[in-house]
Each structure stands twice: as C-alpha cells, then as structure tokens.
Amino acid sequence: MAITYTSGEQVEVYRFSLPATILIPLAAIFLQAFLPLRVPFFAIFDLPMLVTIAFATARRNPMAGLFTGGIIGIIQDSLTPHPIGLFGIAKTIVGFGASSLGIKIDVENMGARFLLTIFFYVLHEVVYFVIGRGLVGLHIAWSWPHELVSGIANAVLGIFIFMLLDRLKQRI
C-alpha cells in the first residue's frame, strides 16, 4: 500500500481499474446527454463533473486529476454545438484543484465531500462563464440562486456517486 505523507498525516492513495477508468466517465457523459431529454429536471446536474471530482480526490494526483478532467471535459464539449475546450478548461481546473485539495484534507468524510462538491461546482461554473463570455463570446446567463441550488443538488447527488465509486476504487 503506497502512502503519501503530507504535514505528518498519512493519506491513502487509490486507483481505479482500466475498465472503470474508461467506462465510468463515458457512462456519466452518456447519461448527462440522455437523461435531461426524458427528465428535464436532471439538466441541473453535472455528472461528468462529479465523476471528475470523485476520481481526482481518490487518486490524489494532480497530474492525473487535470488530465482526467481535461479529457472528460473535451468529450463533453464534443456533444455540444459550441467550440471544444469550454468544459475542457473548466474540468481541467476542477480536476487539478480537487486532487490537490485531496492531498491536504480528508475527503473520506461525507460533510467534506458535500462542501467540496459545492465549491468545485461553483468554481466550474465561474470558469465556464468567464471563458464562454470572454473568449468565445457566448451570452451565458448567470444567476447566483440558480448556481447555489444547482451546487447543493449536485453535492447531494455527489455523495451517492462518491459512495458508488468507493466500491470500485482499489488501494495501491
């Protein structure tokens, strides 16, 4: 079992099997594209972002986190009519941040996961908004109440996704 040492505390590092590494993000992207058409309320969730956070915090490797987030984001971008890179950049930052933070704090705790998800959801939306408006010229609407409610909804769903992925992660 590989253990990293940060500030005198021991932190466990996990990995995921190759099928899980490929199929889980793909399933998240697929469900994100498929479900909102049948259940419009589902559009407030961002499953690929939750998977990015879950993978990044479990691996605790910033390099792996940023590449995971970047690839998931680019795939998600490919399904939209907008230029590729909007979700890519946002999720790259989220993946890097989540894995970096995962080294420093205990992310096994449910409360920490809840707050972490809200924080990274808002960060994700802010980055998307800034890049979308500033670089691409999209007229993206911004509403703090909407973002906060979406953040809380994503955090609640994130707890279940974290629990699900806990079963699939393997100790190194």
Partner: peptide, 10 residues
C-alpha cells in the same frame, strides 16, 4: 431524438 448535448447552456 436519441440524446441531447448534456449542457444547460447549449
């Protein structure tokens, strides 16, 4: 119709 874009903004 088989799927959407998966994004609220598009």
């Amino acid at each position: 119709v088989i799927g959407g874009s998966g994004s609220e903004s598009s």
